[in-house]
Design a protein around this nucleic acid. Structure first.
Lengths: 200, 200
DNA sequence: GTCGTGATGGCACGATGTGTCACATCGGCT
DNA sequence: AGCCGATGTGACACATCGTGCCATCACGAC
């Protein structure tokens, strides 16, 4: 977490501007109806420069978030291989909720755009998969067996996704995400217990 | 399940040919290096007709599977709202394993292609999300509350994905998928129990 | 055999994404 | 201050993607 160089600062600013303008334009006139030239123009750069900052049109909307999330998560997962893997990951997810659960209006608008555009939704899911894989590697680096780490990471992501889904459905009240996360976590045992109790 | 018309038969044959040739070409020379014109040519149709059968280049690879999977799953989920939601879904998933766990070589090749091409992986994840949503709707149609149905669907998909991942990692032995599915299911209680036992 | 419906192919077009070169701008250096 | 290398930016050309449009062809009904 050393201070960014001027170069990095300008690049980050450009990515933020692109993400903001892309989300705005996608929400206003739709994803397909928005051209790269328009996004680039709204962010004060040439179309050619647009592709220097982001990989493609989809990437523009995700350019901002990609940096922060992973770092927040990994920094908040407590070390110590004695605790349960899923418990450790959920601790990190809770910290992520505190960070991500603030500007609910923007997140709701973003979710509306994702809902209407399968290509963007797919991109979002791919990003979530990368988080899951990073969480899995994190556990394995602490000696957790591969299969156990992968399953724990998958479960943690499922809990996060369901809590986030409920949060958006409820309007994105600031601060409510953490409580929903606890709700979903508390519901896990019931699902699994009922599974084991099935037909003796 | 009425017999298909000649038109539907030809269309299905075209989609199968496209999926087969697309997977082959993507595996041979890479996704980016393969043009739509080449896939269309390998499947004996003009580029223009290519886009009549599949939405875009990505879609060519998924054109075949999209039909079967969902039907198999939904047909195998037992009705009866008295059983636990997750148990019902996992029963359907087990039937899916019996159907999908056969030609492991093709599935491994397919997975290699997905691993090397984020765009295709994203498409695959989007398809999995659609399955999850269909499973959720299926439960809700039987009176399961929304939140419970969504979480159960998410958990079922997580179990499926982890079992499938292990199956591919182990080489895709025919018939081994069902056993891995049972393994992962059996590991669920440990993760959740350890979660509850954490700090009193 | 003829006609109509639907599938196909060919053409043109806008949009996406990349290679390449030229210019501007910012930093350190004397 | 003035120079100079490095990096960022713009402009053009280009291949590919995906679609609208119309002409053509195959197949079934009569």
């Amino acid at each position: 977490m050393q201070r960014p160089t001027p170069r990095e600062r300008r690049q980050a600013a450009a990515r933020r501007a692109l993400a903001e303008q892309a989300l705005r334009l996608f929400a206003e006139r739709g994803y397909e109806a928005t051209t790269v030239a328009e996004i680039a123009d709204a962010a004060d750069m040439s179309p050619r420069t647009f592709f220097r900052h982001v990989r493609d049109k989809d990437d523009a909307m995700f350019a901002a978030d990609e940096d922060a999330f992973g770092e927040v998560l990994e920094a908040a997962v407590p070390a110590g291989a004695d605790a349960a893997p899923l418990a450790r990951l959920l601790h990190g997810v809770r910290a992520l909720a505190a960070s991500a659960g603030r500007d609910g209006d923007v997140k709701c608008a973003r979710e509306r755009v994702l809902e209407e555009n399968p290509a963007l939704r797919a991109r979002d899911l791919a990003q979530q998969l990368r988080w899951q894989q990073r969480a899995e590697e994190f556990l394995r680096a602490d000696g957790v067996p591969a299969g156990e780490a992968a399953l724990a990471a998958g479960l943690a992501l499922t809990v996060w996704r369901e809590a986030y889904r409920r949060w958006i459905a409820a309007g994105g009240d600031p601060g409510a995400l953490a409580g929903l996360l606890d709700d979903v976590t508390a519901e896990l045992p019931a699902h699994v217990r009922a599974l084991g109790a099935r037909r003796g």
